[in-house]
Simulated assay, not measured.
Amino acid sequence: MNTDKLAPGSIFPEVIVPTVAGGQVILGKAGSDNDHWQLVVVYRGKHCPICARYLTTLKELESEFGAQGVDIVAVSGDGIEKAKTQVEEGELSFPVGYDLQPSQMEALGLYISDPRSPQETDQPFAEPGLFAIRPDGQIQIIDISNAPFARPDLNSILKGITFIREKGYPIRGTH
């Protein structure tokens, strides 16, 4: 079990994954411009109904995050077919990456679980994670969970990022 976790204020590691829409996305690098942040949401995979609801909430807040200069990307270890189905069923418009490898999950400090049965999924998968990354690549907010039931409220994350950007609030937890 990997116990190395990313530290607040550290530079987000370069992780490149393919996207359902085609091409690739670099996690931690906002695509819009030099002033944009990136919100990276790691979800467990198509097998997780809690993830589907979380992605729906993220979709509902997408324009509000965009208004605050935050680009969204979601990613899982699912293969293309499951990820594509997730995008279609959720009508997701933000980039969705797939094929996150266990070595990449470890680099992000994520908890990794084995499936309980073949009906759940067919490979190890990352438990939920959320990272708010500043334009300079520094990690402002980290939330890593070992279970699908513990995730940050996305409205609170949005309000927090808004406050941080407006007030120049520092990165916390760096002592």
Score class of each variant (00 low, 15 high):
I141V: 13
E166C: 04
T85S: 15
S76W: 04
T85E: 15
L110Y: 02
P170C: 12
P13G: 09
V73M: 09
E62N: 08
R134H: 07
T174R: 12
Q138A: 13
Q68K: 13
E14D: 11
N2D: 14
G168D: 08
I144V: 15
G45F: 08
D33V: 05
D143M: 06
I164P: 01
M105I: 05
N2I: 09
G90V: 06
W37Q: 02
E64M: 13
I133H: 01
E166R: 13
G173T: 06
S113I: 00
E120W: 00
E89L: 11
P148K: 02
S32R: 15
P8K: 05
F149A: 13
R151P: 03
E60L: 14
D35G: 09
I72L: 15
V87W: 05
F65C: 07
E120M: 05
L110G: 00
G31E: 11
L6T: 04
L92A: 05
T85Y: 13
K82D: 15
S117M: 03
I50G: 03
A147V: 13
D122A: 10
S63T: 15
D136K: 01
K159N: 12
Q38P: 04
V17N: 01
S103W: 12
A21Y: 04
G9P: 05
V17K: 01
A21D: 08
E120F: 01
V73R: 05
E14Y: 03
I144H: 07
F94C: 07
E60G: 12
S32T: 15
Q119T: 12
P95T: 03
S32Q: 14
P13S: 10
K46T: 04
L61A: 07
L154I: 10
E88R: 10
V96F: 11
N155C: 06
P124Q: 10
H36V: 03
K167P: 01
Q86I: 10
I139D: 05
L58M: 11
G160Q: 10
D136G: 01
I157D: 06
P170G: 12
E64I: 07
L108G: 00
A52H: 13
K29D: 04
G79A: 14
G173C: 08
V41S: 02
H175N: 13
V87Y: 07
I26F: 04
T57M: 11
V75F: 03
E127H: 03
G79V: 10
V15T: 02
P124W: 02
P13A: 10
D71Q: 12
G77I: 08
V73G: 03
G173H: 08
T85W: 15
I50N: 04
T57R: 13
K82N: 15
T121C: 12
Q68E: 15
A147S: 14
A150F: 11
Q68H: 10
Q119P: 02
P95Q: 03
Y54C: 00
S145N: 07
I16C: 06
D33E: 08
G23S: 08
D122C: 03
A126R: 00
Q140R: 09
N155K: 12
Q38N: 04
Q24V: 14
G137I: 00
